[in-house]
Structures are given as C-alpha cells and as structure tokens.
Design a protein around this nucleic acid. Sequence first.
DNA 1: AATAGTCGCAACCGCCGCAGC
DNA 2: TGCTGCGGCGGTTGCGACTAT
Length: 298
Amino acid sequence: MAASQRSRSNDTAARAWSPDTPVELDDDQGQQGRAQEEEQLELRRGPWTVDEDLTLVNYIADHGEGRWNSLARAAGLKRTGKSCRLRWLNYLRPDVKRGNFTADEQLLILDLHTRWGNRWSKIAQHLPGRTDNEIKNYWRTRVQKHAKELNCDANSKRFKDTMRYLWMPHLVDVDDHRRRLLQAQQQQPHAADVFAAAHAAGMAVTSSSDSFATADSSYDEVGGIYANMHVGEMLVMNGGDWGQDTNQGLWPAADQSSVQATAGGHQFQDPELSGWVQGFSEGITENIWALEDIWKIQ
DNA sequence: AATAGTCGCAACCGCCGCAGC
DNA sequence: TGCTGCGGCGGTTGCGACTAT
C-alpha cells in the first residue's frame, strides 16, 4: 500500500487533466519512439463524450470486443485500450443493468462478501448485469456506511457475523420476526443466565469473552438481538447444538435454519449461488438498509 | 438564496498473471 | 528462460449532484 500511496502522490500532476487536454508523458513514456509519443500525446482522459460512446459501441457492434489497444486505434478513439474496455464493460455493454440494487442483490452481495471478501469480479459473476465496479461502489458507500454506524469495520468479523447471523436472517420475514421478538422478550432469560447456560454446556465462552461481554451489555438494551449474533458465533464454536437447545423462542424457525445452514463450516444449500439467500427479500423493501430502524426499535 | 458538507458514481491508477515471442 | 504487451483486478480519486444549515 505504501507503494501505491507513493505512486499516487506522483500522479498528482498527471491528474490535473481536463477532458479536452492531452495526457502528459512521464519520463519513461518519453523514452519510447517518437511516433508512439505523438500518438500518446493525443490520448484523452476523463469523462467520455457521447460521440466517443457511439464510436465505441458501433465499432464493437461491427467487429466485436477484445484486443482493446488495437480496437481503440482502429476505432479512431484517442483513448487507451484499458479506458475503452472499462467504458464498455461498466457502462456501454447492452446487458449492463442500471439502477438500484434489488433487495435480493443486496443480500447476495452481503453473503458473497462474507465468503470471498473484496473479490468484486467474482461476486459480480453471480449478479447478472452488475459490474464489479458497481458492486465495489455499493459496498464502499452503503455497506461501509452502515458498518461505521455500528462502530465496526465492514471487513471485521463482528460486522460479518452481524450480517450473517443477525441481519440476513432478520430479513426472512420481518413481520413474523417482530412478532416473535416480542414474544421472546417476554420469555427470554437474562443474559447472565444465558452465559451460565453456555458455560455449563462446556462452551469456550472465555475465548470470546469480549464478544459475549458485548452481547451481555447489549442484551437488555435490545432484547437479545446482539446476543443472537453471538449465538451464531457460538454455533460455529460448538457445532450448533447450543443454539438449538437453549435458544428456542429467540430465533424464528426460519432464522434457526439459516443459522444452521451457515454455522457448521459455512455451508450453503447452493454452493454457487447461496440459494438460501435467494428469495429472502420477497415482500420487503428494495433497500434492505431501510430496515435499519428495526435495530433502533428494539 | 448561498454556502458547506456529504454522497454516489465514473474513471483512473498500479499491480499481477498470462500468453506469445 | 526472460522479455514484452495485454487484460483483468482491486484500490483510490475527482467531481457533479444532492442535502443540510
């Protein structure tokens, strides 16, 4: 990263462009052949114009995509091959899906990101019409924003656990969940009792004492919500038995199945497409984050 | 209405792996 | 076997649009 930052600072001057100004050459580029230098001097950067878009689209329609550097030259575009490729893949390609992510797509992104991390292109392969760039932007803007609101990093285990064991199961059936939570709040034991039960069951609660302490402190406040997240953690630690035995009434039935599906070694019904995620969002808002008020309601 | 702050997105960059020579 | 060019990837940035004050 240091190298990246160093190179970034060196890019400052080169970044002072406008769409109508040619690219300035650095020393290395200046050492190349004169013809190539003259050609590169004319390269454009910045936002694409409508004419450029039309040129690129028409050329690809006639000749197909690929060989981007030669394509850019042949099409008469004063752009780098990389720039043409990016413009085509992220914006001009006919099957690119524009607009907001659906709830299903958002859930799938959350799910796949917990499995693969910032492998945007790999994640994008499972969202037809969506580009890695779009997903990356979505993650950086929406998801990281909510992680910040939770005072944790979007790549942290805590946030991923929150997503996997709390938030996503939450979306299975919001109304049903609310009703069951009300019941659970009336029935559930105090967090200290839960801790004692876990301890008596021989769980390695000491190894997650920090997490449990967090759950403990949040328990009364939110009526078991955060504790449930750590129940998920404990399921991972303890093979899933504890949650089934002691957590009855806390999780809606569908939630438990989801947890079980993920707890034992992060297994999925559909190893390719996380089928257990698909269909989660039926009947809920298109913006899953709009449900964040549930957190505050509890 | 003007200004400041924030957000979302398009586009850039360097790095890396691969294929061809 | 090493070099070179290309394509792909993930990280970062700049700026217009939007919102709050």
